[in-house]
Design a protein around this nucleic acid. Structure first.
Length: 243
DNA sequence: TATAATGTTTGAAC
DNA sequence: AGTTCAAACATTAT
């Protein structure tokens, strides 16, 4: 569920609740949800992996972490973390993090930092990368302050496609190659979106969860990389290591 | 059945 | 006081 494109799909699925009044709430979240009924949803937004239900003076922020899920107009067996009832249906969230953010989304989130956003700004990403030359690129891609919405699948697929080893140091990657990485972070995220929409995401994985590299037939090296220690699938022949 | 996996926050330890 | 890191959380497919 969790990477940026999946949240965009949720946003599309939940758009019918935009402008609607929250009639009632339930759920086992510890937040003060009693203030929700009677409020109107101003807009449904997303930023990176976060799903935002924007009301006039606060935002309900949902983060699905690793295992979170949602149902629209249906329910799972488990009790919902948060359930919102509207006149035209209900929105149910499970096993996720729910927070109330005070303030306006434009004050809290920079649209230029979200790879799924129209306002995504690749130059800004590049200058942020230049600030951390000693970071490994596998960590940098997962950094939500730089590439909001990129998760481990996108990280792996991007680095395989541009043929860069995950343990390459940001400062040692040639600038043109860095531009390619930044471009592909957004480009692959949108491919992810369309493939996920059509339930064919896994079919298009080139390295993630794959056994062998289809360029050279060598088996992938599987390794947990970076300070974030997330698993990587590496073709040591096809992906260049810049150190 | 045990394990690992699309992730982040928190608080203890250093 | 700043950093680092393990623990916590929780679900599902293999």
């Amino acid at each position: 569920m969790p990477e940026g494109p999946s949240i965009v799909l949720l946003k599309e699925a939940a758009i019918s609740f935009s402008g609607k009044e929250i009639l009632s709430v339930e759920g086992n979240s510890k937040i003060d949800m009693h203030r929700f009924p009677g409020k109107r949803v101003e807009s449904i937004q997303s930023w990176g992996k976060q799903f935002l239900i924007v009301c006039d003076d606060f935002i309900i922020r949902i983060h699905f972490l690793l295992f979170g899920s949602y149902r629209i107009n249906e329910r799972k067996e488990q009790p919902p973390r948060l359930s919102l009832q509207f006149e035209n249906g209900e929105l149910n969230f499970y096993a996720c993090s729910v927070k109330i953010l005070e303030g306006r989304p434009e004050d809290l989130f920079d649209p230029e930092g979200d790879v799924m956003n129209d306002q995504w700004n690749p130059e800004k990403a590049k200058s942020k990368l230049e600030q951390t030359p000693n970071a490994e690129i596998c960590d940098a891609l997962l950094e939500q302050d730089i590439f909001a919405g990129v998760g481990n699948i996108i990280k792996n697929e991007v680095l395989y496609r541009v043929q860069v080893h995950p343990e390459s140091l940001v400062g040692k990657i040639p600038p043109a190659k860095l531009d390619e990485i930044i471009y592909e972070a957004r480009n692959y995220s949108f491919q992810f979106l369309e493939w996920k929409r059509n339930f064919e995401l896994k079919k298009h994985w080139l390295c993630h969860n794959q056994k062998t590299c289809r360029r050279c037939e060598l088996p992938f090296s599987r390794k947990h990389t970076g300070t974030k220690n997330r698993r990587s699938f590496i073709c040591v022949k096809c992906q260049e290591l810049y150190v």
